[in-house]
Amino acid sequence: MIFPSALCHPHPDPEALARCLEGLGFRRTQSASPGLLLENGSLALRLTQGQAERPLRLEAQVRDLSSEAQALGAPWQAESEERLDPHWARQRLHHPLGLTLTLLREYSEDELDLLPPLPTHLDWQPEAVAALQQVLRQVPLDFRDAARRRATERAEYLCVVDGGLAPEPHHALQGLVDVTPAFQHPLLADAIRALGYAPEPLFAARQPA
């Protein structure tokens, strides 16, 4: 089995291109010839002396297209932003050394004002779905997918423990309370109260799952 470890790119001036790539977070590594080896932790590039057949195209996911494009500055030339679909936008930047950088930005469910469906297996009451979807918005985005799955599983478990097959709002909210770390409890309590439910009994009955 062969595990490719680097992308090779011929260029008339590898040293100049390497300096440009260092501006994008690449570091030179100790390596034997041929050429220069650079890596950034997830991608390795070997630059060799030669005629470039096409521009080197790199892609990066960023949180903000315009600020990242501005931060790069001259001599990068930026195309205008493109919305690829409701979830993704793209901006391409070109460097005179023959380097094209594509910046991608994913729009979050909050920015799109979406309430993604819950990964349910039981026959949920619509009010229970709505309650959990709303309160989940208080969970930081980076942890929300995991919280959505775990709270749904926990709510379904609690519902069956209660002898039911159709989770109700109190199962949904208890499920989220049970899987939420303690430091987020104040925020969660406020969100539950804002929906019209009393958070105290839910926190009193909390069984970390």
């Binding site: 890596e39 932790g41 997830s42 980076d142 995991a146 899987v179 970390p208 799952a209």
Partner: peptide, 24 residues
């Protein structure tokens, strides 16, 4: 604190950038 079963999805729980740094 996550349920122990989440271990199976540990790689997807770690932000991509951090995972790349750890693997590097």
């Amino acid at each position: 604190e996550l349920p122990a079963d989440a271990t199976a999805e540990l790689e997807s729980l770690i932000p991509e950038e951090t995972l790349a740094q750890i693997n590097a």
